[in-house]
Amino acid sequence: MSVTFTAELGDDSVNMSNAKAARVLAALGYSELCGDEGADAFLGRVLLALAIEPEDCGRPSLTEGRYIDCGRPEGYIQMRLLELHVLAEQAHRAGLHVAWG
């Protein structure tokens, strides 16, 4: 399963797994894996998260029976926030919403 962030009717997107998307969405102040918001508000959330989110130290992968968590590399949250910043700015210039799900 994955979550894709897109600028409504746009071609650019940022895609990540559900677990990693949940962590990024939490940094943005969201609690749902799907939704949409105007580009201005989304851009504001991204800028705020970039300013206050502590540096992501990553998480090692984990396997317990049939459960597999691939972990995440150091700096992952900030890398994804920077990608979302680019997407949000493009959506802002085009007057679009940002949607994810």
Score class of each variant (00 low, 15 high):
C57A: 14
M79Q: 12
E37H: 03
H92P: 01
L25K: 02
A99E: 10
M79R: 14
L48Y: 10
C34I: 01
S2D: 13
G71R: 05
H97D: 14
T63K: 14
G35A: 08
H92T: 12
A91S: 00
A21S: 06
V14I: 08
A19C: 05
T4C: 08
T4F: 02
R80G: 00
V86I: 11
L43T: 02
A88H: 05
L47R: 09
K20N: 15
L50Y: 00
C57V: 14
L96Y: 04
N18L: 14
L25E: 04
S17H: 08
A27Q: 04
G58M: 12
H85R: 14
S61F: 13
K20P: 02
A7L: 05
I68G: 02
V24F: 05
D36W: 09
T6P: 00
G95P: 00
S61N: 09
R23A: 09
G71T: 01
R93Q: 13
D11G: 15
F42S: 00
E8D: 15
S2A: 13
P60S: 07
C57T: 15
H85N: 12
R23D: 07
H85K: 14
N15G: 01
A22P: 02
E55N: 10
D11F: 10
G44D: 08
R93W: 11
I52T: 14
R59C: 11
S13V: 00
A99T: 07
G38D: 09
D12Q: 10
A7R: 08
L25I: 03
G35W: 06
F42I: 07
K20D: 13
C34Q: 13
A26Y: 11
A51T: 04
H85D: 11
H85S: 09
D56A: 10
R59T: 07
N15A: 07
N18W: 12
Q78K: 08
L81S: 01
A22D: 08
R45K: 13
E8P: 00
F42E: 00
R80Q: 11
M1C: 05
L62F: 12
T4G: 04
E64P: 00
A7T: 07
G101P: 03
R66Y: 04
R45N: 09
H97E: 13
A27F: 03
E74V: 15
G71F: 01
C57L: 13
M1T: 12
C70W: 12
V14T: 06
A51F: 03
E8K: 13
V86P: 02
D69A: 08
W100P: 03
